[in-house]
Design a binder for these strands. Structure first.
Lengths: 331, 331
DNA sequence: AACATTTGCGAAATCATTTGCGAAAACGTT
DNA sequence: AACGTTTTCGCAAATGATTTCGCAAATGTT
């Protein structure tokens, strides 16, 4: 248990002032090359590491970004986080990740924690029923840019980066149309969530206007288990749908379980298409065709927006990441 | 962009010294009740929040734990992290999560980052080929307890908390025996990883000694895709195995894909059993039977060990979390 | 009344680093 | 030689909170 090396110690050993050591280490032009060399050498030997807290205290900034998500066990967020980390690293920042569970109280604590530790910027995907903006406002007031992503608040004047829900749903609808499906089963998540509503309306509208004779049955399923139960029921009926649309990975996994239960063949017995980040679809054979909503791409966009805010962008902006179709042979 | 409130500001407004304000806020007996009341009131109104960096600078401790994992997109780690967070919160600590990707360089950076930010303790699951202990030693030398979990180094004198690899493999072998399997296919991960070796030897030994007439075929697969390819090949052969053991989720997902490819029925055509944390197995119908290795339980154990180390436990210890069988109907 | 103890609070040091300003030395210019 | 300029570096303040020490007044003890 040896104490960490400090500038003071180096300065004592070299018989020069602390200030000079500090400047030498950061290649300040005021310092001569020889002095720099000596300082760097000793610092190397004693492996000096600057005290992050002293620096943050001085600069009032921590060179780290905060990411707050409902939960990290989610492939979409994982990719988002990966993208942010990748970019952050390039700029010499690090990233801390905080989970809010489904507890608004915890989300609050997380925000406060980020503010206390003076993060440089904050990326937030809020919890379903989180509506209180005061805590976020406070954060922005103290000079920390906040970028909302994926689950963004309805509140208008804030920076948002989200996936193209409508577009992804439209892509899926198009596939249904092109494949000439006549009886489509579409399963959506909790109808209280705006994401479900927007995907549903986009999907149904596109299908109805381009294939008016196609029958659409919609089901709501709040989790994988519900999707499993309800899909199984729907698939058992005499008039089995010839195409199934799953608006999320959770729903897709439930549907696939139902399909296995009934020993149906894909895509001959029924076709399947989903909106997904890509992990779940490739677990099956044939792999599931999906409209991709890439957390990675979203992360890159969010980071770019963050940089703009840090550079002093004053206005707020809503950015939408486009979706692409990934063919897997399931429809 | 208003600057945060400081003790100084409060002291100025109240016409008392900074020291008194500080003590009043932490209920120091030296301070009179009236003074305390006044201070607390003003602090409340101005919503004063102590500067975390100043405190950490003084105390050389950050009241936060670091968790370093290869990647967070892993249900095992998610549960581990959840457990640590839950416990940490109870004790007034927070948690920062860092990913190493599969890059040893990044693992190093992560460790350094934790040391720089003077985390109270560090939980680490190392990368496959990480063997250099000097960085960890340095961390412990500076007074930060390090608890290894799951993927632990072979190095002896360090604190480790791991799942009962052998036991889980033995449980799976027992199921094979009880079901009277005669031709078992067992798929293991990268043979360079100790986890693969220990699971393999435990599984094979148990099976051989209790069911000497059972044929065992072992395959190595370093990822899901390899498991898929090789399992498909093995399952196509005339003499199809009647039981498959998958040592991990990754392998299981590849095997299941092969099974779907060949349209085999589970468990009638062949049985499947895995070692898993539980997420992947319940994606299929029938759900896959597995020997559970619980990240959550492991997290609780790791935290307890951490507390012991912080309290001054000097010796090192290796703790094993037991595994239980979860029946899913796949064998 | 003389002394001891308790109460309530402030001054100043401390943590490690950064930085504006000043100072001394070295150098160049006329 | 006198002056201006550049180079190189140190002093000291500042960041925000904690904590040791000590002071003065109030209270208690004999």
């Amino acid at each position: 248990m040896k104490a960490p090396v400090t500038l003071k110690q180096l300065s004592l050993l070299l018989n020069i002032s602390i200030a000079t050591v500090s400047r030498a280490l950061k290649d300040h032009p005021d310092i001569s090359v020889e002095t720099k060399k000596k300082v760097r050498e000793l610092a190397g030997i004693m492996d000096y590491e600057p005290n992050a807290y002293a620096i943050s205290l001085k600069t009032n900034n921590s060179k780290e970004f905060g990411i707050i998500v409902p939960e990290i066990s989610n492939y979409f967020y994982n990719y988002f986080i990966a993208a942010i980390e990748e970019e952050a690293r390039r700029y010499g920042y690090s990233v801390i990740i905080l989970q809010s569970g489904n507890d608004p109280q915890q989300e609050l604590e997380n925000i406060r924690r980020c503010r206390k530790s003076r993060v440089t910027g904050l990326f937030v995907s809020t919890i379903t029923d989180s509506v209180d903006m005061t805590e976020f406002k406070k954060t922005e007031d103290s000079g920390i840019p906040v970028i909302f992503f994926d689950k963004v608040p309805a509140y208008n004047s804030c920076n948002k980066v989200c996936v193209a829900d409508e577009q992804a749903a439209t892509i899926a609808a198009h596939v249904m149309i092109n494949k000439g499906k006549k009886d489509v089963l579409a399963i959506f998540g909790d109808s209280n969530m705006s994401i479900s509503a927007s995907r549903k309306s986009a999907f149904c509208e596109e299908l109805r206007s381009n294939a008016p004779d196609c029958k659409i049955t919609t089901i709501e399923a709040r989790n994988s288990e519900e999707a499993y139960q309800r899909a199984a029921k729907a698939l058992k009926s005499k008039k089995r749908p010839d195409g199934i649309f799953c608006m999320s990975d959770e729903i897709l996994s439930g549907v696939m379980k139902a399909i296995q239960l009934l020993k149906l063949n894909i895509p001959s017995d029924t076709g399947v298409i989903a909106i997904s980040n890509g992990f779940i679809p490739q677990l099956y054979y044939p792999e599931i065709t999906y409209a991709e909503t890439s957390g990675f791409k979203l992360g890159k966009l969010a980071f770019a927006r963050m940089m703009a805010c840090m550079a002093g962008s004053t206005f707020t902006q809503t950015i939408i990441a486009e979706s692409v179709l990934v063919n897997g042979g399931s429809i």
